[in-house]
Simulated scan of single mutants.
Amino acid sequence: MRDGVEQTYPDHPRPKLNYPFDDPPKVGGEVRDVAPGVKWLRMPLGGALGFINVWAIDEGPLDENGAGWAIVDTGMGGTATRDSWRAAFQGALAGKGVSRVFVTHMHPDHIGMSGYLTRKFDAKLWITRLEYLTCRSLSADTGREAPDDAVRFFRAAGWDEDALEHYKARFGGFGRGLHALPDSFRRMADGDEVTIGGKLWRVVVGSGHSPEHACLHCPELKLMISGDQVLPKISSNVSVFPTEPDGDPLTDWLTSLARIRGKIPDDVLVLPAHNDPFHGLHARIDHLIGGHERGLARLHGLLAEPKRVVDVFHVLFRRVIDRNLLGLATGESLAHLNCLIARGQVTRTRDAKGVDWYRARA
C-alpha cells in the first residue's frame, strides 16, 4: 500500500538495491546534487512517509528566454511546503527563478504546490492530460457530500455502518492538499522528447497508480525520475475507486511495469518520490510484479469459499487494517479481485443486502 505497506512475504524477499547517497537532504529546503545540473530536495509530508523527494534541473540564468530551474514535482499544498520552497530559493536555488514545473502525476503530494510555483514565477505546468483533468475533477469534490454511488460501492465491499459514516465525514478532502491549480498546462505524452537543462529527456508513461503517470528518462545522464511508478522500499497504491467500480488498474500497473523494464536500461539511477535514489531498476520491477502475482495466487486460493472484500485483507497485507487504512486496503483488494475476474478466475455475485461475494471458478 502507498503508505508503506509492502506485499512482501518470506518467500519473496526484497532485492538488493544499491543506494549511492549516504547523506540525503534534510526536509525543508536543503539541497543535494545527484548529477550535473540536477538537484535533490525533500518537502514535508504528514503521516508515515514524512517527506516527498522533488527535483530541480538547472536550465541556466533566468532571462527573457525562460531559463531558470525546471522543477519536477512540488510537494503537498500548504504553508510547510511553501516555507520549504522559500528556504530553497533563499539558499541553494537562489539567484534563479523557475522556468517550468513538471508534475509526474495528480496526487496532492506531487501536484499540490504547482499552482504556487507557476504563479510566483510565471512558469508553465507540464503534465499529461489525464493527470491534469483527473486532478481538476477530484478537486471539484472538495466540500461535497459523499455521493450515493460511493456509499453503495463501499457497502458492497462489506463495510459496516460505522465505517460508512466515517467515510462520509471525511469525503471531499482531496482539494485541501492543493494550492489552487494552474488554469492551463502544457501536455506531455508518452514518447515525447523534451530538452531540459540542455539534455534530452524522454517521457515514459505508466498507469495503474494514477491514470497517465509520467516518468522522465535522461539517457545521457543515466537518470530516471520515477515519481511513484517505481519506489525502492514501498509499493505504490493501486486501487479501484467508486468512480470506476469495474476498473482493472492492476493489469494496467503490471503491464506498465513490464513496459518500463523493456524501455529503460538497468544502468539508470532511479530518482523516486519516496525513499532514496537507487540502482537496480529491473530487479525492483521484477520484485514488484512478482509480489503482486503471488498476492493474486494467494487471493485465488482463499476464494475456494465465497468472500467479501473485507474478508481478504490478511492474504494481501501483513499489517492489521484499521479504520484509517480501510479505504486503501479496500481499493487495493478490489484491484486484485477485478484482475482475477478479468483473467476469468473469479466470479462476483451481489446478495439481497447489496454486498458482493467473490468466489474462484471451479
Rank of each mutant, 00 (worst) to 15 (best):
R323L: 12
L269V: 09
T330S: 06
E161I: 11
K353E: 13
Q7R: 13
C339A: 13
V346S: 00
I264K: 05
M224R: 09
H179N: 10
I341W: 00
G29H: 01
H314K: 07
L41R: 06
A283W: 02
E332Y: 00
T134Y: 06
V355D: 03
R86D: 15
S84Y: 01
L181M: 12
I225G: 07
P25S: 11
S210H: 07
Y19M: 13
H279F: 15
G158P: 09
V312W: 00
R298G: 09
L133Y: 05
L125F: 04
W253E: 04
T128I: 07
N324L: 04
G143P: 05
A88S: 10
G247R: 00
G280R: 04
Q229W: 12
K16Y: 12
V151E: 12
T8N: 11
F241Y: 13
G290A: 02
D356H: 00
T255F: 01
H209G: 09
D149I: 00
H217K: 07
L133D: 10
H213F: 07
D160C: 09
F121I: 07
V355A: 04
G91R: 11
H110L: 14
G295P: 03
K39T: 14
V270L: 07
D192A: 02
K26S: 14
K16N: 14
A342P: 00
L257C: 07
A146T: 15
Y358Q: 01
Y167L: 15
A70Y: 08
T118M: 08
K353M: 11
T255E: 10
V312M: 02
L178H: 02
G175A: 05
K353P: 01
R152N: 07
T81Y: 04
K16F: 14
G175P: 02
I321M: 04
P10H: 10
T128N: 06
K199E: 15
R343Y: 04
G344T: 02
D248T: 00
G29E: 03
V203G: 10
T104I: 13
T74K: 01
T81G: 03
L337H: 02
